[in-house]
Computed example of a mutant assay.
Amino acid sequence: MMTVAHLLRGKPIRLVTIPSYETLTKATEILARERIGALIVTAPGGDLAGILSERDIVRAIARDGTAAVMAKVSDIMTADVVCCSPDDTVDAVMTLMTAKRFRHVPVKENGKLVGMISIGDVVKAKVEDAERESADLRAYIAGT
């Protein structure tokens, strides 16, 4: 069974983070520059404080208008972050993402943030798994 650790091996090691005191303007600049959909928000000292997604930003702008861009990331972010472990299965994380309706999950190991996976990572892994299984079945049927 494929695990989150497998997904992390195919991703860059660098985590894109933003301090909780930064503005939403700074966050949008980072999201656009990095071409990603969510940022890990860090507390003073570097601990995980939350996650800020494009959806969080859209909701803030819908609620507060253009004034939202000057808000602190800590005022907009999702503070109650659901994390997974490198040992979790891809199927379990996919089920969690679907049930909770979120697209990004930070990965923690022994209390330390080690990465983040997206729904795109999960879908890519599932497609690769299905393609591999199909190839194996074709080879079995062909008798090779």
Rank of each mutant, 00 (worst) to 15 (best):
G115A: 11
S85M: 04
P86Q: 06
V41G: 03
A79G: 13
L7K: 03
T3N: 11
A49E: 02
V58E: 10
A32Y: 06
L48S: 06
V107R: 08
P19S: 12
K108L: 15
V16W: 06
H104S: 08
I18Y: 06
C84N: 02
E54A: 09
K108H: 01
I141R: 14
I117P: 07
M1V: 13
K72F: 01
M97N: 14
V73C: 05
V123Q: 11
Y21L: 13
T28E: 00
C83H: 08
D91Y: 03
T28N: 04
K26G: 03
G115M: 13
I57C: 07
D121N: 09
S20N: 02
R9C: 10
A71G: 02
R33P: 01
H6W: 02
A62D: 15
G65I: 08
K26S: 14
L31I: 15
R63G: 02
V127C: 04
K100T: 06
L7H: 04
L48A: 03
E54W: 09
V90E: 10
K108P: 00
K112A: 15
G45H: 09
M1K: 06
A67C: 03
G65C: 06
E131I: 02
D121Y: 03
A60M: 12
R33H: 08
D136I: 11
T25I: 02
I36F: 01
M94H: 15
T144S: 05
V16S: 03
K112Q: 12
G45A: 08
S20T: 03
T28G: 00
I18M: 06
V127H: 04
A125F: 06
K72W: 01
V16E: 06
I40M: 13
R9P: 02
M94T: 14
M1P: 08
G46T: 12
A49C: 04
L31R: 00
G120A: 12
L137S: 13
L48N: 07
D56Y: 06
V105E: 07
N110K: 02
D136C: 01
I36C: 04
L137W: 10
H104A: 11
V58M: 11
K26D: 09
D136W: 03
R59Y: 05
L7A: 14
G46Q: 07
V58C: 05
T144C: 05
M70T: 14
R55D: 13
L96K: 15
A92D: 13
R59N: 01
R63H: 07
T144P: 00
V69F: 10
C84L: 07
K126F: 02
T95C: 11
I13H: 14
A135E: 15
R14N: 11
